[in-house]
Design a protein around this nucleic acid. Structure first.
Lengths: 338, 338
DNA sequence: GTGAAAGCGCTAACAA
DNA sequence: TTGTTAGCGCTTTCAC
C-alpha cells in the first residue's frame, strides 16, 4: 500500500496525493476530497521513512531525561507528550539513568541518527563537550529545568522560589528555620539544590538572621532520605520551629519524622516544600507550585515555532510562574516558653 | 555527510560501507577497520530514514501506556527502555492519558505510520475493534500488565498474588480482613482490581470465612483515596484487624489512616499491599513484590527475538514471579478482649 | 491546480 | 570479499 495506489485510485498523480494529504502546496477542494477518500478506503498512511528521506522532516521530537521515575520528569514528559501528539509529532524518549555509559551512547549514537527534528533536554547538566555535541546536531534544542550553556532553557528561578518559601516562614514569625536540601551526590549532578539553598540563605540574611550550619541538612530528594535528616534536625535541643525542604517529597519525609517524634505539624514545626506534588494536597502541605506539565508544553511550543513552517509566534521569554500555596503545614510558631 | 563520502574516504564502495557499519554481510577485518575509521573521522552516522526505507527495519519500538505518572508504568517503561537502548533501538512513547481522543489518534494515526518495528502495550484494556487495528499493523506485539486478546501478554497472576497476600494475613491468625480495591471507574477501565478482589475472596472462602461486603472498600489507587476508605473501614464498631490493599500506595493510605485514628500498625491493624513500591521499605510495608522493571525488560526480549535476525531464543512462557516480602506492618492480631 | 521526473541516502540482490 | 545497481516511497522543483 503506497502512494501510487492511492494516486491511481483517485485518478491523480502521486504529487497531488502528496500535496493533498500533507497540506502543503495547493490542491483544489474537489481533488483533495477525492484523494482523502481514496486514502481512507485503502487504509493508506504515509510512510514516515520515505517522507523523511524526501523532505528532511521527521515529525519527531526527542526528549532526554535523567530519570524516569521522578515526579518532575514524568510531568514534564507528560506535558510535552500531550502537546506533541496533538501537533502530529511522535516523541522519542531517551533516558540517561543507568550505570554511566548511557549518556555517551545517547549523545553519540542515538541523537545524531537524525531521527528527530528537535530535542528537549530535561534537567540535564552537561559537560562542555556534551553541549558541543548536542549543538553540533544543528537541531533546535530547548532545556527544561537545568540551564544548558547557550541553549534556551525553561527553568524555575530556584533562588527566588526558595526565597519566597523561606519568607513565608519568616513572615509567620519563625526565626529558627532549618533547610533540607541536596546531599553531596545530588549537588554534584545538579545545580538546583545549591540554588535552593542559596535562596534560603538570602532570605535569612535579609531578615537579619545568622546562618547556622547545624540548621541545614542534605538528603537525596526522597521521602526516606529526608525523614532521616529531619529526625536529626528535630532531635536537637534548640530545634527549629520550621523546616523548608527543597522538594515536596522531602517535606513529606519531614512531616512523617515530626509525627514520629511526637511533634505536631504545624503547632510544633511548620513545614514547607517546593513542587506541589500530587500528594501535597493530601498532606495539607504548604508549598511553592511550579507546574512541570506546563513547562513541558511550553518547551514544545518553543520548538514547534522553530520547525513548523507556519507555526505560531514563539512564546515570549517570560520567567516561569511559581506560586505560594498555603495549606495546613505552616503557621505561627508557638510562643517561646520559659 | 552521507555514505558516499565515507566510501570515498575509505576507498571502498557504498555497499561495503553499509556492510561494515551495520554488521550484516561479510567484510574483511582490514576493510572494516578502514571504514570505521573513516566514518569516525567524518563524524558519520547512518541516516535512519534512508536505512529504514531501504531495509524495512526501523530499530524502533513503540510503547503505549495509559498514564505516565504511575509507578507501575514508569517502571515498566524504564525497564524496557534500558534493554532497548543497549540493543541499539530507539523507543517511541505513546501516552493514552488525556481527554479521550488520544486512544483513537494513537491507534489510527501514529502506530500505522510504520515508524516502529514492534509495540509494547502496557496495561491496555482494548476494545475488540482496537485489538483488530493493532493486529492489522502486522507488527509483533506484546502486552504487559493487561491481557490483550490474541496477544502474548506478561501479566502478574493477580488472583494468585492476592490470594498469597490474604493467606499471609490468615496465617497470622486474622479473620476480620478488609480489602481496599478499585472503585467503579478503575474497575471499568481495568480488570486488575477485580482479579485482586477475586483472590482475596478465594482465600477467605478457602479458610471458611464468610465474605462481608462491609469489609470491602473501593478507591482510585491513590494514597489519598485509600486513606478515606480506610478511615471508614477502621471507624466501624467491629473493625477489621487487617487490611489487604490492592496496591502499595493504597496500603500506605491505610497506614496513615490508622495512625490518624490512633491505631498502631501492626498491633491494632495489620496492613499488606501489592507492588513493592519505592517507598514500601520506608514504611516497613509488608507486600507482594512483582518487579515491573523486569517485566519491561522481558517484553523487549520477547520482541527482539522476533525482529532481530540472529537474536537469542525467545524467553519461555513462564509465569511472572511474585514474592511475599514480610516487613513490619503485619503481625498476629491482638488477642480478643472481652 | 496538476503532472513528470529527479532525487533523498541507504540496502540487498546479483555479479564479479 | 567487494562492487554495481536497482529500488525503497515519498516530496518537490519545474513545466504546463
Amino acid at each position: 500500500m503506497n502512494i501510487d495506489e492511492v494516486a491511481h485510485a483517485a485518478g491523480v498523480s502521486t504529487a497531488t496525493v502528496s500535496r493533498a494529504l500533507s497540506g502543503r502546496g495547493s490542491v483544489s477542494p474537489a481533488t483533495r476530497e477525492k484523494v482523502v477518500e481514496a486514502a481512507r478506503n485503502l487504509g493508506y498512511v504515509v510512510s514516515q521513512a520515505a517522507s523523511t528521506l524526501a523532505s528532511g522532516r521527521n515529525r519527531n521530537v526527542g526528549i532526554v531525561v535523567p530519570f524516569l521515575d521522578r515526579w518532575f520528569f514524568t510531568n514534564v514528559l507528560a506535558g510535552a507528550q500531550e502537546r506533541l501528539m496533538h501537533a502530529g509529532y511522535d516523541i522519542t524518549l531517551y533516558n540517561l539513568a543507568g550505570r554511566g555509559d548511557e549518556r555517551r551512547i545517547v549523545l553519540e549514537n542515538f541523537l545524531p541518527r537524525q531521527r528527530v527534528d528537535a530535542v528537549i533536554a530535561v534537567s540535564l547538566e552537561l559537560t562542555e563537550c556534551e553541549v558541543t555535541r548536542l549543538r553540533e546536531l544543528g537541531k533546535p534544542i530547548v532545556g527544561v529545568g537545568g540551564p544548558i550553556e547557550g541553549v534556551r532553557t525553561l527553568a524555575l528561578d530556584d533562588i527566588a522560589a526558595s526565597r519566597l518559601a523561606t519568607e513565608h516562614l519568616l513572615s509567620l514569625g519563625h526565626t529558627r528555620i532549618a533547610h533540607i536540601g541536596g546531599d553531596a551526590a545530588s549537588d554534584r549532578d545538579f545545580h538546583m539544590p545549591l540554588k535552593r539553598r542559596r535562596g534560603y540563605e538570602q532570605a535569612l540574611r535579609t531578615a537579619g538572621i545568622d546562618l547556622d550550619e547545624h540548621m541545614v541538612g542534605g538528603a537525596d530528594f526522597t521521602v526516606q532520605g529526608s525523614y532521616r535528616v529531619a529526625k536529626l534536625l528535630l532531635g536537637r535541643p534548640q530545634r527549629p520551629t520550621a523546616i523548608f525542604a527543597a522538594s515536596d517529597e522531602m517535606a513529606i519525609g519531614a512531616i512523617l519524622a515530626a509525627q514520629d517524634l511526637g511533634l505536631s505539624v504545624p503547632q510544633d514545626v511548620s513545614i514547607i516544600g517546593i513542587d506541589d506534588h500530587d500528594t501535597a494536597e493530601f498532606f495539607g502541605l504548604t508549598t511553592i507550585a511550579h507546574y512541570p506539565r506546563a513547562q513541558g508544553a511550553l518547551a514544545v511550543d518553543i520548538l514547534l515555532a522553530q520547525i513548523e513552517p507556519n507555526a505560531a509566534e514563539p512564546p515570549a521569554e517570560t520567567p516561569l510562574p511559581f506560586d505560594l500555596i498555603v495549606r495546613r503545614t505552616t503557621s505561627r510558631p508557638r510562643p517561646e516558653q520559659g
